[in-house]
Nucleic acid binder design. Structure first.
Lengths: 107, 107
DNA sequence: ATGTATACCTTGCAATACAAGATATTGAGA
DNA sequence: TCTCAATATCTTGTATTGCAAGGTATACAT
C-alpha cells in the first residue's frame, strides 16, 4: 500500500493530458506534475513511458534546440493519443466514482 | 493503460474500508465491490491481498460455518488496519486532487 | 577549468492484478 | 442416488509498471 503502487496506470494518462494542452518535453512534464501537487516523479518513470506511448502511436516527437542545455524532445498527441486520453478520462471518472462509493458506503 | 493497472494500490484500501464497516469474508467482498460499481475483481486478486494484509497485521480472521457451502473466513480490522485505512484515505484524497488538477489544468 | 542546471536514457528490482486452474462443501433437481 | 450449480477458498505463473540508481551530454556562469 504505497503511493507508487497507486500511481500505476495514472501517470501515462496525466502525461497525455499535459501534452494535450501544449507540446511539451519530458523534463518539463516532470516539473509540471510536481506543480500539480504530485510527489516528484522520477525521470526513470517518465522517459520510458513517453517512449512506450510513442511506440504505441499515441504521441510523436520533435527535437528542438534549447538555449539552456541539450536538445529537448517535444511530444505531441496523435489522434490515437487523443482517443487514449479520452479513454483514460472516462476510466478515471469511473474509478473515482467506485472508490468514493466504497469509502462513503451510504448503502 | 488498462483498468487493471489503475487498480493497483487501490483494492487493498477498498477492502479495508469494507471490513471496517462490518466483518466480512472474501467471497462477499468480491460481490460487494461489484455492487459498488467495480468490474468483477478476481478472487485471485482478493484472497492473496487478504492473506498479505493478515501477514502484515492489518486484519485478523475467524472461520465460521455457512449454511450454503464451505466455511467462511471472516476478516476484522486491527488497530494497525484502522491506521492503514486512514493512511489510504489521505493518499487517495491527495491523488484525486492531483489528477483532477492535471485534468482540469486551470493554471 | 570547474561546477551547476538542464536534458535524455538504461538496467534491474519490487509490487501487484489477474487468468487459469485446483479443491471442497451444500442443497436442489432429475 | 447422481449430478449440477452455487458457494467458498487457495495457488501458480504472467504481464505491467513505478522507481532507484546510474550513465551521458550540453550550455552557461564563476
Amino acid at each position: 500500500m504505497s503511493q507508487t503502487q497507486m500511481m500505476k496506470g495514472i501517470i501515462d494518462g496525466c502525461l497525455l493530458a499535459i501534452i494535450a494542452k501544449k507540446e511539451c518535453y519530458g523534463y518539463e512534464m516532470a516539473e509540471s506534475l510536481s506543480r500539480y501537487g504530485f510527489d516528484t516523479i522520477s525521470e526513470g518513470t517518465i522517459y520510458p513511458l513517453l517512449m512506450r506511448m510513442q511506440r504505441e502511436g499515441l504521441v510523436t516527437s520533435v527535437l528542438r534546440n534549447s538555449t539552456a542545455g541539450p536538445k529537448r524532445k517535444y511530444y505531441l498527441l496523435t489522434n490515437e493519443g487523443q482517443q487514449a486520453l479520452s479513454d483514460f478520462l472516462s476510466r478515471w471518472v469511473q474509478l473515482e466514482k467506485c472508490v468514493n462509493a466504497v469509502i462513503k458506503q451510504e448503502n
